[in-house]
Amino acid sequence: MAELTSPPAAAPRMMARMAARLRGKAADPAKRVQFDSRLLPWLFLAPQLAVIAVFFYWPSIQAVQSSFYLEDPFGFGSTFVGMANYADALTSNSYQRVARFTAIFTVLVTFLSLSLGLLLAVKADAVIRGAATYKTLLISVYAIAPPVAGLIGMMFFDMHIGPFVKLAAWFGWDMRVGLNYFDTAFAMIFVSVWKQIPYNFIFFLSGLQAVPVSVREAAFIDCKNGWTRFRTVVMPLLAPTAFFLLIINITYALFDTFGVIDVMVKDKPANNPITLVYKVYDDGFRGNDIGGSSAQSVILMLVVFALTIVQFRFLEKRIHYG
């Protein structure tokens, strides 16, 4: 597992530097490099900046622009409507319903995949015999692409032949994924969490292995209780990893679950729960309502932006980077 340790462990350190930048402090003055020319650093940055400009800034600007217009899909007529697209979205019942579900979905998926990932990592860390096999088995799920995960989930939860449905029936739960709002939500969260656990597992495990043996031994002398030891010594040392994963998991739940949802609602959301990003797609690409869909994507962008700022401002302050 040693080869796994270094790259994920580096990620929290990168976050620390990012956080420091956000607070307006120079992260590490000792590492400052002097360039001969003022242009040289920009030259090094250029390829990355170009990629960001082409794939992020430019489309974002276009989205903001078209969110103020009502457009016919082919681009013949477009009428400036000011904030009407935003008002339509925010006041519509269906949008509010989707927004509520997205919030619940994001909280549950993030919480469950983080806590289960951590639990498995702590347990796997303690295993000595056959450790590599356990770890490989736990990690392998990560290699599954989201739509494939959705397909597998769909088969498990199929209302006619799904084994999970039969299992639920055994407990008296008449599960009807695709028909019953709650059941579909359950299946979606289940598959999304299942898909994300291995990712969290890898990071938590490498985080745990980065806790020095000397610290653990010292803690063991001071305290017999394993839970207290974990809470007071290991957990604070894991905090940078956990914070990094929190942000990644929220982004995952908001955006990357698209593939799972798309496969699970089979192209026809009907009364089933969907997330905001799926609605952006549904209105924009299936409904060809470009203005409305752009307004929704701008709202989503602002929400994520605000969420990230809040996390760095308030949560990040309480984290100590070793």
Partner: peptide, 10 residues
């Protein structure tokens, strides 16, 4: 297509 989606939901 969106009107169809509304019907499917209802």
């Amino acid at each position: 297509p969106q009107i169809r989606s509304i019907m499917e939901r209802e």
